[in-house]
Amino acid sequence: MAFQPGFDVSKIEHLLNGRKDGEYGSLMTMLEEVQAQYRYLPKDALILISQRMGVPLSQTYSVATFYNAFSLKPKGRHIINVCLGTACIVRGSRKILERISDRLGIEPSGTTEDGEFTLETVNCLGACALGPIIVVDGVYSGQMKASKADALLREMLSEGEKP
């Protein structure tokens, strides 16, 4: 597997050098760190990590595709997470998901073409009293309605247009 020239290794150099005891610890913990640094798992990062840890690349790839926390494609600058847990569902969260999906023109798990927004769903955040809930860039908004979601999106989209 050839590397892309110019892949910036610096963000994960500390991971690739291992811990003080010479071990690497857990593969999954490493992947979580990579995901946090790059907002996805770049192919070259996975290849490097697999090599250093002595883990077959096929296993790393298998793990990377199994768990929801990992993404092989870059996520948008803004992440909108709609809770589809049971409590939020009986309070109508599906309509909110549909509204946001319509407005942004993407399906859940998708990212807008300009790389600005990723729409995700989560099966319960554990804040059920506030349902329906959406989380935008880590900020929770409760008692959502489709109209509130509209207003929120309008605000975010207009902010994006500001120079």
């Binding site: 857990s26 913990t29 979580e32 883990v55 296993q59 768990y67 990992f70």
Partner: peptide, 22 residues
């Protein structure tokens, strides 16, 4: 920390996850 898989609440899947497997 888990990595987003409900099935990892099942004890043998949970252990597989700690062992860096799917």
């Amino acid at each position: 920390p888990g990595s987003g898989a409900f099935v990892c609440g099942e004890e043998t899947a949970l252990m597989a996850s700690i062992e860096d497997r799917i």
